[in-house]
């Protein structure tokens, strides 16, 4: 496996910044009641999304989660369609029918966020079967949280993919919290960091590679996913990326269940600041360059917000469309 080029290192930084600024803007819009629904953002977890996405090709697939905006932005999804969908507008990528937790953007291989945890773990083997049938060299990554790893579909999906040696990469985003329940209080097994059973260690039971990585280090995630991608023709891999959620489970979550130390730790290990430092060290980015980049990113997001604000709401009767490919019967 080659080490990433300077260009790719910069690209990782750009994408993480785009995710961060998108999510921060989404939080702000939600707080100002511009976005309806239940909003889950991934502030602090950007290195996982971007480490995965930059190790993939554009035509590779991602199955995502309820905390999925970052995965889509990292995979290259258009911000306008995504933001308009968060607004519930008619020209949202899903015509306003999906919203934050049920977005797909098939054009970039993003096969759907999911409101039900670990559901992607069982969809993934089927995507793998399709890839194999088409004799393609694509892969599918399914992301899920540490909490979701305790649902049955995790076991069924990993077992099936391992049994049939399918090109699937299972990526557990361990942010230490199953909603509001600590990892240590929901997951049995050999203790990993932080306290709580190791998800990566489960790979041994299925006879597949399992790897635990620093999920706040975009390069570590990129390397692990690149290794898994390179061996995908031989079967699946399981990667556990340890990260820290800076925000609540959902917007409005008071987080009485955790102390401030953890978020402080998250900020100390901020994946974007780390990447900026690495780029500076290699002479690939200076302070002026970083400022310029942030301004450009903000402008992209401003554009998406203006687009969403200016877009029409769906006609109410559009609630009855998109159910079937064709539907000519009376209900």
């Amino acid at each position: 496996m080659n080490e990433p080029t300077g260009e790719l290192l910069l690209e990782m930084y750009v994408r993480m910044l785009r995710v961060r600024l998108f999510e921060e803007r989404a939080r702000e819009l939600f707080a100002n009641a511009r976005i309806p629904g239940f909003l889950h953002t991934s502030v602090g977890q950007e290195a996982v999304a971007v480490g995965v996405a930059t190790a993939l090709r554009r035509d590779d697939y991602i199955l995502s989660t309820h905390r999925g905006h970052g995965h889509l932005v990292a995979k290259g999804g258009a911000l306008r369609g995504l933001m308009a969908e968060l607004y519930g507008k008619a020209n949202g990528i899903c015509h306003g029918k999906g919203g934050t937790m049920h977005i797909a953007d098939v054009s970039v291989g993003y096969l759907g966020a999911n409101g039900v945890l670990a559901s992607g773990c069982v969809l993934a083997p089927g995507v793998g079967l399709s890839i194999r049938h088409r004799k393609s060299d694509q892969v599918v990554v399914t992301l899920f949280g540490d909490g979701a790893a305790n649902r049955g579909p995790f076991h069924e999906g990993v077992n099936m993919a391992a049994l049939w040696k399918l090109p699937v990469i299972f990526v557990c985003e361990n942010n230490r919290w199953a909603s509001t329940t600590a990892h240590a209080l929901s997951t049995a097994g050999a203790s990993a960091r932080p306290a709580g059973g190791s998800i990566a260690a489960r790979a041994a039971g299925y006879g597949i590679p399992g790897e635990s990585v620093d999920g706040n280090d975009v390069l570590a995630v990129w390397r692990a996913v690149s290794r898994a991608r390179a061996r995908a023709a031989q079967g699946p891999s399981l990667i556990e990326a340890h990260t820290i959620r800076w925000v609540g489970h959902f917007e409005g979550d008071g987080q009485a269940y955790r102390g401030k130390d953890e978020v402080a730790e998250g900020r100390r290990t901020d994946p974007i600041a780390r990447q900026a430092a690495l780029l500076a060290e290699r002479g690939l980015l200076d302070a002026a360059g970083a400022d310029d980049m942030r301004r450009r990113m903000s402008a992209e997001i401003d554009d998406a917000v203006s687009h969403a604000e200016a877009s029409p709401l769906p006609e109410p009767h559009e609630a009855l469309t998109d159910l079937f490919a064709e539907w000519s019967w009376r209900e």
Binding site: L123, G126, L129, S130, P153
Partner: peptide, 13 residues
């Protein structure tokens, strides 16, 4: 769950 779920993953691709 994996039989039915994988069928959907395959069908959508």
């Amino acid at each position: 769950a994996a039989i039915v779920g994988s069928a959907m993953g395959a069908a959508m691709t």
